[in-house]
Design a protein around this nucleic acid. Structure first.
Length: 557
RNA sequence: GGGCCUGUAGUUCAAUGGAUAGAAUAGAAGCCUUCUAAGCUUUAGAUCGAGGUUCGAUCCCUCGCAGGCCCA
């Protein structure tokens, strides 16, 4: 609800003697009113209180409220559509509509998707980006300065596996080298898993060479790493991720080892049974964290300790957020506890999102059923292109490709964003390819219709909001008024699906309006104007909210 | 064994203690000489189980059951 409206209602209630916290809700059906005041806090019998209150409220002086009615323990307000439009439309047409200032002068860092070099970029990584992108936008919309960074692990066992396999079987890259390398990694994993005993010594040997920075190994390492890095750069551009910088694991590893030494000196860490450096976190119900292998080698924690330090030193942010799969929830609880024990005072937040499973089960390189982002993209593109070409025989190849590209990105992102982020999703190719219902094309179709109307109807001239009277128009106005709260809620819960749902609801309400009432073909030209203005505002808010999901709209489809 | 997450129409998901539990999809029946039918209307269909707290529980607590993830 818009602030201007809320303050009017609060004022009204205050004059009627309602004190304390005021709670509003949305009536279940629009014929029951537009906003409900909840009377449970008022007295012993909320039903009676509601009836009493409904009689006492002085609405005559208020343009906004046509009627007040008690429904059980609620007092419901019926708004005047014209006045509602007057308050809403101008506001909603502003560019900064929906934004707030809660993050003024604050700076946060968001780390995602933090993939590994030498590995594939599959639809799980893609989900990470689809959650990280909106988060960056939510913070910005709330006035924060945001620094997106990427932390890339370029120096672990996974690298050894890929390099060993390339050397052993003399593999040569073809096509997209980043993608090829990922596929090679998957093959290598599978092969190594199946021949574990024979190949482990060879892998260990190569790891030693790599860690000792033996020239020939380093040459292959650098070359292959550059393929990943280059490919990832292109992917991040394609997905609208604007990393301020990339930190590589190899850059922070040594400092991590120093921190482990400090922890030992301070007696926070100890030497475990088999010579590894550990921290016993049983007291905090977090088990035991291993900071260094008995061989002296580092582990994830080793580097992450240094990464945390670097983030705050280098970027001077108030909070650091990182996004990974929920399977790492425990790991990050441990990490944050260790940092706390070491006197680290900065705010760290970990956001876990659920796995992307397939109808056949978990994705696994070993089982060879991983869906790569690029493959999915190409498949969706082809399917949408066929559909679009059939609908628009008169379009040029260029126009088709441009439109289909936007549609493809919208479909892919929305598929990942429509569900709550901490839930495991089952990715169903058929469902992703069906462009009906709760999907990006549904929403983009509504905006394409609006664009078409605006093209034909031209700019609205005379605005007479009093002409808006229909229930469908009111519904749209009410929804437009919710945008700011939707943005706040989405940020509060780190949940892009809140915004995704809102876009859909708005599109749904517009389609309903569009089907029941004519916008351009009515006698009264002033009514045409005001309906165009309403449509324009809806289009603008849908476009802006989709923008938060880094989804673009199309002019026509 | 311990910790965390999840359980809602046939299916995929909403609903942060409040009204008659909402959508989408699949099913059934309709709507294009009218602003884009990737659309709209109608219809049928659900809270894992047992207790507890509360005026009121899908939501909070306890104990089960089922699935997932993580840690020894």
């Amino acid at each position: 609800m818009l602030e201007a409206i809320e303050s009017q209602l609060k004022d009204l209630l205050k004059k009627a003697g309602v004190t304390g916290e005021v709670e509003f809700s949305k009536p279940p059906k629009s014929d029951m009113g537009d906003v409900a005041f909840v009377c449970f806090g008022l007295g012993k019998n909320p039903k009676e209180e509601a009836e009493k209150l409904a009689k006492v409220l002085k609405i005559d002086s208020l343009e906004l409220i046509d009627e007040v009615k008690a429904f059980g323990p609620y007092v419901n307000f019926f708004f005047n559509a014209g006045e509602l439009a007057c308050l809403t439309l101008e506001e909603a047409s502003k560019k900064e509509y929906g934004s707030n200032n809660s993050g003024k002068d604050k700076k946060v860092l968001i780390e995602y998707p933090s993939q590994n070099t030498h590995k594939e970029f599959h639809i799980g990584h893609f989900r990470n980006v689809c959650i990280g992108n909106p988060l960056v936008q939510f913070y910005r919309k709330s006035g924060y300065k945001v620094i997106p960074i990427n932390y890339v692990n370029d120096f672990g066992r996974h690298v050894v596996k890929a390099l060993w396999y390339i050397q052993k079987f003399d593999k040569k890259p073809k096509g997209n080298k980043q993608k090829w390398l990922g596929e090679i990694y998957a093959e290598a994993s599978k092969h190594i898993e199946e021949n574990k005993e024979e190949v482990t010594p060879e892998l260990d040997e190569l790891q030693t060479k790599l860690e000792a920075r033996e020239p020939e190994t380093m040459k292959l390492f650098e070359e292959t790493k550059s393929w990943s890095v280059g490919g990832f750069k292109n992917l991040m551009d394609e997905l609208d991720v604007e990393h301020d910088s990339i930190i590589y694991e190899s850059e922070v590893k040594d400092r991590g080892q120093e921190i482990v030494d400090e922890l030992l000196e301070k007696n926070i860490a100890e030497v475990g049974e088999r010579g590894a450096i550990i921290i016993d976190l049983e007291k905090y119900n977090l088990g035991i964290a291993v900071l260094r292998k008995s061989t002296g080698g580092g582990l994830y924690h080793t580097s992450d300790l240094a990464l945390a330090e670097k983030k705050f030193k280098k970027y001077k942010v108030e909070e650091s957020i990182n996004i990974t799969g929920t399977e790492q929830n425990h790991y990050f609880k441990q990490l944050f506890k260790i940092l706390e024990l070491n006197g680290f005072k900065h705010k760290m937040t970990h956001i876990g999102y659920g796995l992307v499973n397939l109808p056949s089960g978990k994705m696994s390189s070993r089982a060879g059923n991983v869906i790569l982002y690029e493959d999915l993209r190409d498949e969706v593109f082809a399917s949408l292109k066929k559909e679009t070409a059939e609908r628009h025989a008169d379009w040029s190849e260029e126009k088709i490709n441009k439109t289909v590209h936007t549609l493809t990105m919208a479909v892919l992102k929305f598929t990942m964003q429509k569900h709550e982020s901490n839930k495991i999703i089952t990715f169903d190719m058929e469902e992703a390819m069906s462009f009906d219902g709760y999907s990006a094309p549904y929403i983009l179709y509504a905006t394409a219709r609006i664009n078409s109307l605006l093209r034909k109807g031209g700019k609205a001239k005379k605005i007479n909001t009093a002409l808006l009277k229909e229930a469908e128009e009111k519904k749209l106005l009410m929804l437009l008024g919710e945008y700011g709260e939707v943005v706040e809620k989405a940020l509060e819960n780190y949940n892009p699906s809140t915004v995704a749902r809102y876009c859909f609801e708005l599109a749904q309400a517009f389609n309903d309006f569009y089907n029941k009432h004519s916008i351009l073909n009515v006698e009264d030209k002033d009514l045409v104007s005001i309906r165009l203005a309403l449509s324009g505002a809806v289009g603008q808010v849908i476009t802006d909210s989709l923008g938060l999901l880094t989804i673009e709209t199309v002019e026509e489809m």
